[in-house]
Design a protein around this nucleic acid. Structure first.
Lengths: 237, 237
DNA sequence: CGACAGATGCTTGTATACAAGTACTGGACG
DNA sequence: CGTCCAGTACTTGTATACAAGCATCTGTCG
C-alpha cells in the first residue's frame, strides 16, 4: 500500500503539495499560477511543476490555457453537484455490501477515529483528515476501499466548497455526531438505518453550498466557460 | 461541450491516440513503451509523449517505473471489480433521478443508437462506441451526464477486460437486446424494472471476465505488485 | 484629447541536453 | 565450465533553450 521507494521524484512531491494547497484554499479559487514563479519558489525547473499542473488540470482543480496562463479553478457548482451525486451513490452502495462479520482491525481504527473527532479543540484541517479517513474506512469494511481513490479524485470541487462552508460558522461537531450514528448502525448490522444516516449526513454537508455561493460569488464559476484574465503585471523595481 | 479551438496541442492528440490504442488492446497489456520510440514514430519530441504517458499513468492504464521503463498496465482483476462496482452504483442511482418527462432530444438519440446496434454486421469497436454513447445518454436523461466522465476515467481496466471477452466468441447481440429492455423500462417510467434490467446487464458484462482470465492469464496482473522486466534490447545492424 | 499600432514582457508548448540509475553483455579469471 | 565484474546501452527525471501567441503598455498620429 505504501508507495514505492523509487517514486520519490520531485514531481510527486510538488503535485501533492500543490494539490493540498488548492484543496485547503491556501491557493484561492481563481488565483493565477505561473509555472516559472512556482518553479522559482520551489527551487526546481519548470518541468516537474508543469507536469504537476497537467495532472491537477486533469482532476479539474487547475485550468491551463495555452499561451495565456494557468489558474486555480473556481469552484464549479455543477461539479460540486456531480461529486455529491457520485459519492452518495458509491457510499450508499458500499453499505449494501457490508459483510456479516466486520474486519475487527478496521472497526478499531474507526472507533479511534471517532474518539479523536470528539475533541473540541479540533482544527479544521485535522477534522477533514479524520473525516476523509472515516469515510474511506467504511468503504474498506465492505471491500471497496480502493474505490475511494476514484471518489477522492472526483470530489475536489466538493471538498473546496465544504471548506468554504466551514470557514464561515458551522462547527464540525454536528458532523462528528452524524459519523457516530452511521458507525453505530454499521456495527449494529442495520443497513437501512446506516443508509439513511449516511444520506442525511452527506446531504447536510451539501446543503450549505448555495448559502456560501450567495455570500462569496467570486469564488465560484459563473458562466458555462469562465474567461481567463491575465493578471496585471506589476514589477517591483 | 466541444473542446476549445486552442487546445489542439500535440499532447492532447497523442494522449487520445495512445489512450485509444490501450483501450482497444492495440497496445497489449504488459507491452513495453519507450518515450523515445513513441516520440520518433509519432514525429515529435519526448515532451508531449512523456506528458501523455503521465496522464495515462494517473488513469492506471500505464505504469511508469523511473529509470526502468513504461509499460501498458496488465488488466488488474481488482481494478476491474472496482470499476464494475462504481459504474453499477452510479448508473443505478442515476435511474432513481429520472425526471417525469424525459428530454425528447436525448430520447431520440437513444432510439437511433439502439437502431444502429441492431445491424448484424457491426464491428466490435463500432459496437463499443454505441454502447458508450448509450450509457452516457441514459445518465444525461437524469441530469448526470457529466458524471459519466468520472466513470469513464475509472473503468479503463473494465473496458479492456470486456474487449478480451468479446474477442473470444460472445456476440454483441445479447447486449443490444438488454439495452433495448433498459430503454423501454426507462421511457415507460418503470424505474424498478429499469434498475433490474440495468443490474442484470452490467453483471452479464462482468461475468465473463474470470473465464477470460483462465484462458489468457498473461494479460492479467498476478501478484499485488507486478515486477517490471526490461525487454531484451535487440539492435538491428 | 482619442484612437490606432507597434514594442514589450509575460504566458504555455515543444525540443533538446544532461543526469542518474538499471539490466543485460561480454570477457577475464579461478 | 562457472562466476564475478566492468562496460555499455537503454531507461526515465530534470534542466534549459527556443517557438508561438496573447495582453498590456506606450508612443505616435489624426
Amino acid at each position: 500500500m505504501a508507495q514505492s521507494n523509487r517514486d520519490r521524484t520531485s514531481r510527486r512531491a510538488i503535485y501533492l503539495k500543490l494539490r493540498q494547497m488548492v484543496l485547503t484554499l491556501e491557493l484561492a479559487p481563481g488565483a493565477a499560477l505561473s509555472e516559472n514563479e512556482l518553479a522559482a519558489s520551489l527551487g526546481v525547473s519548470r518541468t516537474p511543476v508543469r507536469e504537476s499542473l497537467i495532472l491537477l488540470s486533469q482532476e479539474g482543480l487547475v485550468q491551463v490555457f495555452p499561451k495565456i496562463g494557468s489558474f486555480v479553478s473556481r469552484v464549479d457548482p455543477a461539479q460540486v453537484a456531480d461529486a455529491q451525486f457520485l459519492r452518495e451513490a458509491v457510499e450508499l452502495a458500499s453499505l449494501d455490501d457490508l459483510p456479516a462479520d466486520l474486519d475487527a482491525e478496521v472497526v478499531g481504527e474507526l472507533r479511534g477515529n471517532l474518539e479523536r473527532q470528539r475533541h473540541a479543540d479540533l482544527g479544521l484541517e485535522e477534522f477533514f483528515e479524520l473525516d476523509e479517513a472515516f469515510h474511506q474506512g467504511l468503504m474498506r469494511l465492505s471491500g471497496h476501499g480502493n474505490v475511494w481513490t476514484n471518489v477522492a479524485a472526483a470530489k475536489g470541487h466538493l471538498d473546496r466548497a465544504r471548506r468554504l462552508g466551514l470557514h464561515e460558522n458551522v462547527s464540525p461537531a454536528v458532523f462528528a455526531v452524524q459519523h457516530h450514528e452511521i458507525f453505530e448502525a454499521v456495527v449494529g448490522g442495520d443497513v437501512p438505518l446506516a443508509r439513511a444516516a449516511m444520506r442525511t449526513h452527506l446531504r447536510a454537508v451539501f446543503s450549505d453550498i448555495e448559502r456560501i455561493r450567495a455570500h462569496s460569488p467570486e469564488l465560484f464559476a459563473s458562466g458555462p466557460s469562465t474567461v481567463p484574465v491575465r493578471r496585471n503585471v506589476v514589477v517591483w523595481e
